[in-house]
Design a protein around this nucleic acid. Structure first.
Length: 480
RNA sequence: UCCCCCUUAGCUCAGUUGGUUAGAGCGGCUGACUGUUAAUCAGUAGGUCCUUGGUUCGAGCCCAAGAGGGGGAGCCA
């Protein structure tokens, strides 16, 4: 019996062989009627039922089969006599691999709040909801690599520690080995970074884009997929201090090629989830429907999770210039009735969340790509359009999440880029290598960044970003 | 960082105008039952009412400060 090889529950359920002796290892979800064990090993959202002959099993052993305990079960696979499952294991032997004291184990066979589960993030993977999210997250990671690989893109690892302070995407986390209580000082009494590990100030990356651009100017099409760190004091359901971002950079792509790729990419990911995660999505869909029932009619969404995913996969995104968007917003009902907190008056102001939501959720009712933004509200590296006022930037906006992708055609003309850097006042010594790309064999190129967790939010229907990453890092929280 | 809301049993929550001994469901424990499906039935234990200070004869309830959590805004992906 000892040398019988373990079978994963997914394999058992996908291709059951009635009468075969099998061994399964996993965690007890419930133990009903002193007889029926629901066992889950995370290979699928579905449990296998173990049927115990309780009359011929040691009572002390039965007592240890509690919710959360880890067990190994051996027996013959049989067609189930009950109704809720097709097959079950007629248990011959049970081994308790790890007890879970029922008075202390916090998970119960009942619905828990997401807030409570966040506090026990080391255990929440043992729930249906979170194991489904973990599995979908994995499928999406794989799909990202497959999408780009199939198109001839190369994955590039850009540095996590950066010596550049010019990425321009927000506050950075400092990386140092200096003693915080007694740092090395120079003659003027300032901190002497020459004594620091790298001999200069260093930070955690806020974007791999600039390094990614160097790679695309030799490999043509590349993408990065790595951790990203922002020390912004953001407390929202869609921001993390540590998150994962996918950043493709493509030589010879203009802004339209860039938008085409972004749209195809997002649709590919959604389709991949629909095709490969149906059990988990069906569970999350039902979970969301149950959740909706507790809300007032007004706040319920018109489409279910699965309907939303199919809608995005099947419909073209709406592409609208910033200027057109301003016209739509200026003439919109909420603007005329002064319902917007920030009223749209003229051209040039950045759009607020409420405006983006109006365009996506009320006006177009589909994902929207806004492009050609005023240059003054966008980053220095974005390519200036011939009108002298706008840059070839684009944002992909999703319902409920907002900006899921931000990108642009990059400024490839040395003179214009140099002038912009000077205007904004970025020290050229930090960007000499970035400028050299424009000196030696420069080429039109484009790229974008996709917030991976925001994508997972959309695919899983989870409304808080802290629930789609195993151990979220947010201001005042680095537990686990 | 700003605005709003919340914090009562392990979990989810109720608790009347401030009034005696703070409740329910689920979970735990004990027992019954034994083809269950978040099993069912009976019994039982379990409380720093977030913390500190204040008002009051009396505070879970009122006031102030703090802590933790949530929602929204800004920043962005």
């Amino acid at each position: 019996m000892k040398d019988l090889k373990r079978t994963k529950i997914k394999e058992l359920l996908d291709a059951p062989v009635i009468g075969k002796k099998v061994n399964v290892k996993g965690w007890v979800r419930t133990f009903r009627n002193n007889q029926f064990i629901a066992i889950n090993d995370g290979s699928t959202i579905n449990n296998i039922q173990g049927v115990v002959d309780f009359e011929n099993t040691d009572e002390k052993l039965l007592k240890r089969i509690t919710t959360g305990a880890c067990i190994s079960v051996t027996g013959d696979l049989a067609e189930s006599k009950g109704k809720g499952q097709s097959v079950e294991i007629i248990v011959e032997n049970i081994e308790i691999l790890g007890d879970a004291d029922p008075e202390k184990f916090p998970l119960q066979p009942k619905k828990h709040s997401l807030e409570f589960l966040r506090e026990i993030a080391h255990l929440r993977v043992r729930t249906n909801t979170f194991s489904a999210i973990y599995r979908i997250r994995h499928a999406m990671i794989f799909a990202v690599h497959k999408f780009f690989t199939d198109r001839g893109f190369y994955n590039v690892h850009t540095p996590i520690i950066t010596g550049s302070d010019a990425e321009g995407a927000g506050e950075m986390f400092r990386v140092t080995t200096l003693d915080p209580a007694n740092p090395a000082k120079d003659e003027d009494g300032n901190i002497n970074y020459k004594e620091d590990f790298f001999g200069k100030e260093t930070n955690l990356t806020v974007s791999g884009q600039l390094e990614g651009e160097t790679a695309c100017m030799g490999l043509s099409e590349i993408y990065t997929f790595g951790p990203t760190f922002r020390a912004e004091n953001s407390n929202t359901s869609r921001h993390l201090a540590e998150f994962w971002m996918i950043e493709p950079e493509m030589a010879f792509y203009d802004i339209n090629d860039n938008m085409d790729l972004a749209e195809a990419f997002v649709k590919y990911l959604v389709n991949y989830a629909l095709d490969n995660c149906s059990d988990d999505l069906a569970f999350l869909n039902q979970r969301a429907l149950d959740d909706e029932k507790t809300k007032p009619q007004q706040e319920r969404s018109e489409l279910s999770l699965l309907e939303r995913l199919k809608f995005v996969a099947e419909n073209d995104f709406e592409r609208v210039t910033y200027t057109e968007a301003i016209d739509i917003l200026r003439n919109s009902k909420p603007n005329k009735k002064k319902k917007f907190q920030y009223l749209i008056e003229g051209w040039g102001a950045d759009l607020q969340s409420e405006h983006e939501r109006f365009l996506v959720e009320k006006h177009f009712k589909k994902p929207v790509i806004l492009y050609n933004y005023p240059k003054d509200i966008k980053a220095f590296y974005m390519r200036q359009n011939d009108d002298g006022k706008t840059v070839a930037a684009m944002d992909v906006l999703f319902p409920g999440i907002g900006e899921i992708i931000g990108g642009s055609q990059r400024e490839e003309r040395y003179g214009i880029l140099k002038q912009r850097i000077d205007e904004i006042g970025i020290p050229e010594k930090d960007l000499w290598w970035y400028l050299e790309l424009r000196k030696f064999g420069s080429a039109p190129h484009s790229g974008f960044g996709l917030g991976f967790e925001r994508m997972i939010q959309f695919v899983t229907g989870m409304t808080n970003i802290r629930d789609v990453i195993p151990f979220p890092r947010t201001p005042d929280n680095a537990e686990f």
